[in-house]
Design a protein around this nucleic acid. Structure first.
Lengths: 119, 119
DNA sequence: CAGTATCCAAAGGGATACTG
DNA sequence: CAGTATCCCTTTGGATACTG
């Protein structure tokens, strides 16, 4: 019985390690959290605005990231019937699950900066 | 006045984008969250155990990650007076601030897996 | 505006073998 | 046990220029 408990614990443990790995595979890299934060904060954004707000990203890289996010069903891409053409990006419902991660990340980042500067 | 508000908003906004970037610079890559989760969960761990629990990491890579985490004051490394020598790693107080991030990440990872499998 | 094309450097990360 | 040493490949991401 104790052994069974142990194995169940181990199973739960591995599940969580795998969950982390899954999440990182989806959200990893230098820019994805930043992009998702922008969308989370503003609702809908266009390519240019995302580029401006992400501070430093080039169009090629932004384009890549957006495609990956779209493939993973984290954002939707809508072409607007304007002239010239504009494109809107927004989060899917599913992507809203990352909000807690982003908030936690911001929190950590702010505290960490204080820590470093406080020295 | 409205303009001032706007600029303050923008300042707060950029601060948060920077916080995300800082956090990612520290915690980015394929393995760091996984390692920190292990330590967060177990308190103290040795090199070998970290390697085993991180499923797939090679000693070279683990060694790198641990050094980076130590430099950034996220973990401490202690050489134990045993024979043969063992080494213990544990989180610093400061690193405990990442707990919410890790939990949020796990949560997202689990939900995402459900979503994908549910199709 | 919203990208794509091309080129390229650097970093990340893995395999394998070895050491104190 | 706790790493280091080598080698090497792939991915990431940046610069720059161009297009519908």
């Amino acid at each position: 019985m104790a052994e069974k408990d142990c194995k169940q614990d181990e199973k739960r443990y591995k599940e969580r390690v795998m969950a982390i790995k899954d999440a990182i595979e989806l959200l990893g890299g230098k820019w994805k959290f930043c992009i998702l934060f922008n969308l989370y904060d503003s609702g809908t954004m266009r390519f240019k605005d995302l580029q401006k707000n992400s501070v430093g990203i080039t169009p090629k890289v932004l384009s890549n990231e957006l495609q990956e996010l779209e493939e993973n069903l984290m954002i939707t891409r809508t072409v607007n019937n304007t002239k010239p053409v504009t494109v809107s990006y927004k989060l899917t419902e599913h992507a809203k699950e990352v909000e807690p991660v982003i908030n936690a990340l911001i929190n950590f980042g702010l505290k960490h900066r204080d820590k470093i500067q406080g020295k």
